[in-house]
Simulated assay, not measured.
Amino acid sequence: MSDYLVHFTKRPALLSILEAGHVDARNQFGWGRNDTSTAHLRMSACLSEVPVDQIERIASRRGHYGIGFRRDFIQGLGGARVWYAEEPQRTILFDTFRPLYRNDRDRTNGLWKLTPFIDDVRPEYDFTWEREWRVPGGVRFALADVQFLILPRGEDKELFRNPAPDVPLLSPQGTEFWRDAWVALGNDQDRDVDRFLREYANPADYLTWDHEEYDYTWPVEGQTSAEAVEDVFDAELDYEAQAELVSRLDGISGGLWLKISAFEEWAADADLGV
C-alpha cells in the first residue's frame, strides 16, 4: 500500500480505537510464543501493507473497518514488517534459538526483541500476501496521525466523523478504495495503480501453483511489471514515474502479471465459464 498501513477491525472496535487514541496490543505474535518469560515482547498490534488488489480479500478476513497511518509513523513507533521464514531459514532459526532457551536465562539476548517480527509459513494458510506489520506495545496516536478510515457501504459516516472530523472516509471495496484514496490523499501513483489493475491481475488470483515447477501454470503469456506498464500507459508516464510504478508493482505480485483480457479470452475458448 505504498506509504500507508491499515489496521483492519470490526465496527465497535474502531469506535473504541478512535475514542482511546490507541490500537491495543491484545495478542502475542511471532516466534517463540511458548516462551512465557518473553511473551510481553510479542504483544503487538497488527497492520497490513496489503497489496492494492487484495483490499477486499483482507477486509473479508479481518474486518471491513480500518484505520490508516503513514508507514513512517508506524516505523517511528518501532513497527516493522513480518518475516515469514521458510526452509532452510526456518531450521536455522530453530537451531539459533534452541541454545537461547537453555542458556539465556535472563532473556537479555537482543534476538528476543526480534521475535515479534518473525513467523513461519503455515501449510494450512499462507499469510505472506497480507504484507503484515507489527507494533509491539500497540499504536498510540493523535487524530492528526490518522490518514484515513475504511468504512463499508451503508455505514453511518456521521457517527465516525464525530470522533474523527476531516479524516477521509474510504470504502473497503477494491476499485472504490483506490479511486477514492488517490483523490483524498493526493497520490497520483495510487491513481495509476488503480488504472493498471483494471487491465492486469496478480497471477495468484487466477492461476494454480505448480509445486514441482515452482511457478504458476500459465495458460497465456505473463508479462513483467515493466512490460505491462508500457502496455497500459504507453508513453504517458515520464521515466521516473514509470520506474517508481514498476518498482511498486513488483512488490505487489513479485514482478509478473496476467493480462485480464487475454486470460478471459483463453477461458472463453476453453469453455471454463470465467
Results as ranks from 00 to 15, higher is better:
residue 35 D to Q: 14
residue 168 P to F: 08
residue 159 L to N: 03
residue 142 A to N: 08
residue 81 R to E: 14
residue 68 G to D: 04
residue 6 V to H: 06
residue 216 Y to V: 05
residue 33 R to D: 11
residue 31 W to D: 02
residue 201 A to R: 14
residue 257 W to C: 03
residue 231 D to V: 03
residue 31 W to S: 03
residue 65 Y to V: 09
residue 27 N to K: 11
residue 171 S to L: 05
residue 162 N to R: 06
residue 94 F to M: 06
residue 182 W to R: 10
residue 251 G to H: 07
residue 88 P to Q: 10
residue 204 A to H: 10
residue 19 E to N: 11
residue 207 L to A: 09
residue 266 W to F: 14
residue 195 R to A: 13
residue 32 G to V: 08
residue 147 Q to R: 15
residue 130 E to A: 09
residue 262 A to C: 07
residue 47 L to I: 09
residue 152 P to W: 09
residue 210 D to T: 06
residue 39 A to E: 15
residue 100 L to Q: 00
residue 221 E to N: 05
residue 160 F to W: 01
residue 161 R to N: 09
residue 200 Y to C: 07
residue 114 L to G: 11
residue 223 Q to W: 07
residue 75 Q to N: 00
residue 226 A to E: 15
residue 243 A to M: 09
residue 55 I to V: 15
residue 97 F to S: 04
residue 201 A to M: 12
residue 8 F to N: 08
residue 182 W to A: 10
residue 184 A to R: 15
residue 257 W to M: 05
residue 25 A to K: 02
residue 64 H to F: 04
residue 253 S to A: 15
residue 30 G to R: 04
residue 91 T to A: 04
residue 217 T to Y: 06
residue 142 A to E: 15
residue 261 S to Y: 00
residue 173 Q to K: 08
residue 256 L to R: 10
residue 133 W to A: 01
residue 144 A to L: 05
residue 42 R to T: 01
residue 81 R to Y: 03
residue 223 Q to R: 15
residue 250 D to K: 01
residue 210 D to S: 09
residue 154 G to K: 12
residue 37 S to G: 10
residue 52 V to P: 07
residue 152 P to S: 12
residue 234 D to R: 13
residue 223 Q to L: 09
residue 160 F to G: 03
residue 253 S to L: 02
residue 1 M to P: 07
residue 3 D to G: 00
residue 108 T to S: 11
residue 11 R to M: 05
residue 218 W to Y: 03
residue 78 G to K: 13
residue 172 P to C: 00
residue 216 Y to C: 02
residue 25 A to G: 06
residue 80 A to H: 07
residue 108 T to C: 06
residue 193 V to S: 03
residue 68 G to R: 00
residue 206 Y to V: 00
residue 54 Q to E: 03
residue 266 W to Y: 14
residue 191 R to Q: 14
residue 228 A to E: 11
residue 170 L to Y: 13
residue 39 A to R: 15
residue 95 D to M: 09
residue 218 W to T: 01
residue 264 E to S: 10
residue 152 P to H: 10
residue 84 Y to D: 08
residue 91 T to E: 04
residue 272 L to Y: 06
residue 243 A to K: 11
residue 172 P to Y: 01
residue 261 S to M: 00
residue 49 E to T: 02
